[in-house]
Design a protein around this nucleic acid. Structure first.
Lengths: 358, 358
DNA sequence: CTGTTAGCGCATTCAG
DNA sequence: CTGAATGCGCTAACAG
């Protein structure tokens, strides 16, 4: 085990007081450069790592950032988390992971409580909320009270809490336009849960493009799913058994597009031969389906990165000098302070699941 | 924000001393039942949550468990993490996530340092190491010094640290037997990185089944990958361009099986028509490839759960005496090997990617 | 610029 | 069974 070094020890070795060591640890400006160097040197040599518990207790700030995420079954969470952890790793912070619940019902129910507990335990000094859904008002209150919060979401509720999202509507419109350009007129849509703004945004983008082309969305061609695996199956079956089938299906996310793929096989429908298919999210496995799925890529990784940088910039705002014992925070984080609201563009990834209708 | 309640406040409200409140908080036996009830009641009402920083500082134990994981790009990590977080959530602990690095090289290089930092910061009171690879000796030393550790891995190095793994060898043998039963004789294998015991175990299982059938592994039919996407491509190309092609390919994991799928298309090879294909891991997307991939399922979720349960049981019943120079004389807790080492069975998931050879 | 002094909130002695 | 006292390792006022 690593030796249990304290500030005390470093102070003794450097011939200074504990206070001075603490100062260089926290990058306070008023320390003699030479002394600072010497202390940093010794800390390096001895492999000193400050006791986080003690410093949060004493300082009230905890070098931990909490991440509240929906169930890890959503593949996209992985990508977001990857972006998050990559940035966190470069900083002096650590990641506290709160996976809220395992099904949608619980998720919505528990989120408020969980957030309260996170705060009350005084563990995290900042919060990154991924798709917080209904707790946005709660998070807003928090933020207004001075607690650093960043949201990754297509915000459901107007809020001034810093957020990062993807431009779902534009992305959906682009996908729909692509199908229209291929010549499709009967385009079906499988919607996500209506409680989520994302679902609406995508639907709006879909309608927007349709209207541009002089078409009206046909209610019969809109089915409901919930973004989870298997939830697109009923909708798919619906479309496949219709008298006048759609020539293309736009699934609200890739998971549900997979369901269409699966059900197509069962119904002897060839994709894209008989019906074209397009998804949303472009999760990694979509490159490997047969046919490979054309999809709208959300920049999850990038969203994770940017959101974390935003959060760090909030946390570090009071810190005047970046010359710390800890690795420097990425410069990007510093630049971000001006832009608290980021809507990142999506990208249409064209693969093999769409053709012109026969 | 949640009111900043302290033990002090609860004590005042209950008309007892802080010490007593602390006692019920930590479930000490020597408290008057009535008093305990009353205090619990008040804590409930007030929504009291102890300050974790303070309690770890004072008590030396931190209610946090650290999880060291390889890059989140590995899809299986998600499943493991899901199992882990589900168990953690049921406990009084929180999850500290350490994603070590983003590519294999860094991963191996940084792991030791990261682990040291985790320990030195006194944040985590237990460690769950997922595929720790070369740092097993390091973890073993830790464990011997009394720090609770559990490893999820097909342990590379013999160790007495509690671990959870899947039975890779048996799984690989089962897959190979399945191919043999279908009538295949020329079976190729795409191996994972040789540094990983998992790769060897799978290869051994492969050879084992071959030998049972009176066959010898043909070195020409064994190619090298590294478990990551695209790394199976060279091997696949090799097999497809051979004069006498194999009739079946066993990929060391699903990712590499995808590469075979991809390259088969490029070479006009039909799967399973011309060549059968089987993978290992059964990551979620394997159900959606075309043809759907037959694969050996690893119980990742279960592994995450069991490993966490193991760790928690260590934390709740800490070993009183660290093992010293005499590994032969182990504390009772460690002799209970039946519970400390779990090798969970895999399952062959038969889908559409294998047929009998023509 | 630097050292000294108080606590942060809790767990854990030790007396009662 | 319970209360009072001590200190975990560090930060944040203070003085110098």
């Amino acid at each position: 085990m690593v030796g249990k070094l304290t500030i005390q020890d470093i102070a003794r070795l450097a011939g200074v007081s504990k206070a001075t060591v603490s100062r260089v640890l926290n990058a306070k400006p008023d320390v003699d450069p030479a002394t600072r160097e010497r202390i940093l040197q010794i800390m390096q040599e001895q492999g000193f790592v400050p006791n986080v518990a003690a410093s949060s207790l004493a300082g009230g700030r905890s070098r931990l950032i909490g991440v509240v995420i929906p169930p890890l079954t959503w593949p996209l969470i992985t990508e977001i988390l990857r972006g998050v952890s990559e940035v966190v790793e470069q900083s002096s912070y650590e990641l506290l992971l709160y996976s809220v619940a395992h099904d949608l019902g619980d998720y919505e129910k528990n989120k408020g409580t969980v957030i309260d507990r996170i705060l009350a335990s005084h563990l995290a000094s900042g919060l990154l909320a991924v798709y917080p859904g209904s707790s946005i008002p709660h998070l807003t209150k928090l933020y207004d009270q001075g607690f650093p919060v960043v949201i990754i979401d297509d915000r459901e509720t107007p809020t001034h809490v810093p957020w990062v999202s993807a431009d779902n509507q534009t992305g959906a419109a682009a996908a729909t336009r692509y199908l229209l350009q291929l010549g499709h007129r009967r385009i079906a849509f499988i919607q996500g849960p209506l409680e989520y703004e994302v679902s609406l945004k995508r639907y709006q983008g879909f309608c927007e493009a349709l209207k541009e082309a002089g078409l009206t969305p046909d209610p019969e061609l809109v089915q409901q799913g919930n973004f989870m695996a298997k939830s697109g199956l009923p909708g798919a079956k619906q479309f496949f058994t219709m008298e006048k089938r759609p020539t293309a299906i736009f699934a609200g996310n890739d998971q549900m597009a997979y369901d269409v793929l699966e059900d197509a096989e069962a119904h002897g429908v060839r994709i894209p031969g008989d019906i074209s298919l397009i998804g949303f999210d472009d999760i990694p496995s979509s490159a490997y389906t047969r046919p490979a799925l054309t999809s709208v890529r959300q920049p999850f990784y990038e969203m994770g990165r940017r959101a974390t940088e935003l959060l760090l910039s909030q946390l570090d705002a009071p810190r005047p000098v970046p010359t710390s014992y800890y690795p420097a925070i990425l410069p990007l984080a510093m630049q971000n302070t001006s832009a608290n609201y980021l809507q990142l563009p999506t990208e249409l990834i064209v693969r093999a699941s769409c053709t012109s209708p026969r």
